[in-house]
Amino acid sequence: MDAAGVRSFWERLGLPGLVDVHTHFMPEQVLKKVWAYFDAVGPLTGMEWPITYRHEEEQRVALLREFGVLSFTSMLYPHKAGMAGWLNGWAADFAARTPECLHTATLFPEEGVERYVRKAVESGARVFKSHLQVGAYDPNDSRLDPVWGLLAEAGIPVVMHCGSGPAPGKYTGPEPVGRLLARHPRLRLVVAHMGMPEYTDFLDLAERYGGVMLDTTMAFTDFSERFTPFPAAERGRLLELTDRILLGTDFPNIPYPYVHQLEALERLGLGDDWLRAVCHGNGTRLFARSAG
């Protein structure tokens, strides 16, 4: 039923399918730890966070194919030094055996980061993931400076969890990201979760820097609207920034069916052209550029 609803959504819009910039695939032992975190996240949010798609990897890939997701990512991230290079190796292998998956890589401020990021770029990485909350690092750490320059020069987007939801971190929020962009204004930075809960501040950064985009992951859904509602006064800015908004879902780590993210976007009332751009056109163009 879920797949039928998803397909009905994009077929009605005349699209060939969806481009989802924020989906999670990672080594099984790492994913199980992520799921354990969400199982315990109730005290942080005041709401339970059941994993709707707690399936084996092969079944999760099959579901995205059934939904009609033409391109997706394997967002993965280290929580400490020494993990990123290993995760990048796994992600490269996953992308090689999963044609729809955009080759994803990650990073951490540590000795050797420039070396393994360059290796990932040279081996065809199309998108990077940076998680300031889980990694608990400052994006302005001097060890990352050559990396941001490299990625900006290569035109490879970085999906960054930099907003302070569901719980703030030492380096989350718009201020560290603003300092980063002041030094690397050409960086293609995708603000995950629309920057929730600091929606307005991250929209401001998108207006200031042409390479800043925002993904819709969990934003506007019933779940998120209960504790971090998107400000109604900012809805018009979503239309003004149509070409900077990208579909993201957080599949499989979502507490509701996949189709609900699409329904949440549709009920914003911003029109079919906006939905077509967000759910397919913008992502297609972005990753065509990152492919060189």
Rank of each mutant, 00 (worst) to 15 (best):
L70E: 01
S74V: 01
M83A: 13
Q59V: 08
T52R: 14
Y53Q: 03
K80C: 08
L64W: 02
W49Y: 15
T52L: 04
Y77W: 15
E48Y: 14
R54P: 12
S71Y: 15
E57A: 07
R54W: 13
G82P: 07
E56P: 06
Q59T: 08
S71N: 13
G82Y: 11
S71T: 07
F72S: 01
E66S: 09
S74F: 10
Y53H: 07
N88M: 05
W86H: 10
E57K: 09
P50R: 12
T52A: 14
R65E: 11
L87F: 14
P50K: 11
L70N: 00
W86C: 06
T73N: 05
E57T: 11
E66M: 02
R54I: 11
W86M: 05
R65V: 00
F67G: 02
V61E: 05
G68A: 03
E66V: 00
A62P: 01
A84K: 10
G85W: 12
G82N: 09
E57H: 08
H79R: 12
E58A: 09
W49V: 05
F72L: 02
G68V: 00
R65F: 00
G68M: 01
F67T: 02
R65D: 02
V69I: 07
I51R: 10
A84T: 04
K80W: 14
K80N: 06
W86N: 09
L70S: 00
E48F: 14
K80P: 07
A62Q: 12
V61L: 08
G68Q: 02
Y77Q: 11
E48Q: 15
V61I: 13
K80M: 11
S71I: 03
L70R: 00
R60K: 06
L87K: 07
V61D: 05
V61N: 03
F72R: 00
L70V: 01
G82M: 09
E56Y: 08
H55F: 14
Y53M: 03
L64C: 03
P78D: 06
L63H: 08
S74G: 14
H79F: 14
Y53E: 06
E48S: 15
N88R: 08
E66D: 11
W49M: 10
R54C: 04
Q59L: 10
A81G: 08
G68S: 03
M83V: 11
L76Y: 12
I51S: 09
R54L: 12
W86E: 13
S74N: 11
L87S: 10
A62N: 05
L70M: 04
A62T: 01
P78L: 10
V69Y: 00
R60Q: 05
T52H: 15
V61K: 10
E48K: 15
H55E: 15
W49L: 07
S71H: 15
M83P: 04
Y77K: 05
Y53G: 01
S71G: 12
M83G: 10
I51A: 08
L64T: 00
E48I: 09
R60C: 01
R54Y: 14
K80G: 12
G85Y: 12
T73C: 09
Y53I: 00
Q59I: 04
R60P: 03
I51Y: 14
E58S: 06
G82I: 09
A62K: 06
Y77P: 03
